[in-house]
Design a protein around this nucleic acid. Sequence first.
DNA 1: GAGCCGTGGGA
DNA 2: TTCCCAAGGCT
Length: 310
Amino acid sequence: MLQQTQVATVIDYFNNFVVNFPTVVALANADEEEVLASWAGLGYYSRARNLHKSARIVLSKYRGIFPTSHSELISLPGVGESTAGAILSLACNQSRPILDGNVKRVLSRCHRVAGHYSDSKVLKEFWRLAKYHTPSKQNANYTQAIMDLGATICVPRKPLCSRCPVSRHCKANLCNDQASFPQKKARTIRPEKSLALLAYRNDKGDIYLVKRPNKGVWGGLWSFEECEDTKTAITAAIKEHNIKASIVSSLPKFKHSFTHYHLWIRPIIINSPSLEKGYFNINKMALGIPTPVKKIITMLDSLNPTKSNE
DNA sequence: GAGCCGTGGGA
DNA sequence: TTCCCAAGGCT
């Protein structure tokens, strides 16, 4: 959960997740659908599918006992070099390096590392430095400490160098150019895409949802049928879905931003009589639904609150 | 190896 | 409003 996601964002999801899946065995025995439902809203959904896969591997291959060797950990889906290092140092107190965003920032300032870590040569240098600093003893303490240092003192903007325990070793601090590290990545403009989401409701108030393929955005989650945001494409798609369907309202489009593009979403609210297959009472089902889709469902409920909770 | 994969908070 | 970026990994 913590991969590319801040602690504050994770906490509620984590607490809920470990209630639903208290042990590795419980997670392994769960359906992927339940796991994704517990993950919905957190993002990067391949993490949830990989975690579930890993739990099943731990159960089948390691008899439910989580492995504690680097080679076994790194072979689990979703566990890369840094996560393996975090597990081995924090849980097992082994001398293994990690390299998360916090550590990169601390190291980049401490050693005035030029370039951005998206450059593989620079990344290699970060790993070299991370290994160099990793102590042979008490590495659990060290790992927690350098991450917390990055999270609380050596923060991205306006680092609190006067309170930093290693400021006298920090090259950037000594040169007084902390603001120049880590070097920014040359920013690229995110393209804008657009689509229409077709929110079909049948006579019972159930909603039509389709399961998305694992590959691509919102992988494995449930979403509305989508089509090109043009009048002709929308009309054709609705006619194809249900000849008796009629548009209730076309809501104003809104923007949802991803890391690598912006998406303009136009919700189309549609009455779809006499159909049941593929329609869900989402109040009764625990389904993994992406955030903007959930947002539209909330709008739906406020449009027609009477039928939604039977 | 470069692109892809979510979302929310802070400035 | 827009941009940055976060306990990264996979293809």
